[in-house]
């Protein structure tokens, strides 16, 4: 009986020692944190904000779990769940990160296409303006439209700056607005030209 008690005591001691050895999964923490940081650095917050936020929240939850285990009695510390959570965070962050370039590329493509269209529309408006006969009654309109085109041209460098700053969504909006206004100017020039033609016809 004495021997049995002795073995039981030793067993209990071994259990204590083993449980006391459970350590924070530092490597897993670092890996998960790095994966999330990499995702953010790649533009996750800008291009896939919701998924990035989810991954970030899950990382916080995993760190909370570690905190919970840290404050437990040595015998009952168990980081398995935290490790699992961290592994999931790392995998999710890496997955979302792989989606960022395509989203970014798509946004960039849209912005550049918009910029091209805006420039083409301004060019067309300018070409039309140079051909417009400055006749009686249309001169004021043409003068005003020259001012309009100048204003549109002033906005093109702002558009370029937005693209350089990789602010593609706002750049696309700006490009769209410039194109629409430039097309409007072209239409007005055509109308002004019609006005002149109409008056010339009346003189005959």
């Amino acid at each position: 009986m004495k021997r049995l008690l002795k073995y039981f005591t030793y067993g209990l001691l071994v259990m204590f020692i083993l449980a006391g050895c459970a350590k924070q999964p530092t490597e897993d923490i670092n890996a998960a944190q790095k994966a999330v940081e990499d995702l953010k650095a790649a533009g996750g917050e800008k291009y896939i904000p919701e998924d990035t936020k989810k991954v970030d929240d899950n990382l916080s939850a995993a760190l909370n779990e570690i905190k919970a285990q840290d404050s437990k009695f040595a015998l009952s510390k168990n980081y398995d769940k935290a490790k699992q959570m961290l592994a999931q965070v790392k995998a999710d962050a890496e997955k979302v990160k792989t989606d960022v370039p395509s989203k970014k590329e798509e946004a960039k493509k849209n912005a550049l296409a918009g910029q091209e269209e805006a420039r083409a529309s301004i060019k067309e408006a300018k070409a039309l303006l140079s051909k417009a006969p400055i006749g009686k009654g249309a001169r004021a309109d043409i003068e005003a439209l020259k001012g309009d085109i100048k204003g549109l041209e002033d906005s093109v460098p702002e558009l370029q700056q937005l693209i350089e700053k990789e602010d593609y969504v706002v750049a696309t909006d700006k490009a769209k607005a410039i194109k629409e206004k430039a097309d409007g100017v072209s239409n007005q020039i055509k109308e002004a030209m019609q006005k002149v033609k109409g008056k010339e016809g009346g003189k005959k």
Binding site: A140, G147, D148, K150, G151, L152, D173, K181
Partner: peptide, 28 residues
């Protein structure tokens, strides 16, 4: 007004920029 009083380019430049901003605001 700018067309009526034939007053020119400077005012029109500001007006077109305002129009662009309003258009962008609509998209936002």
């Amino acid at each position: 007004v700018s067309l009526t009083i034939n007053e020119g380019r400077l005012a029109r430049r500001s007006l077109i920029k305002a129009a662009l901003m309003i258009k962008e605001a609509g998209l936002f």
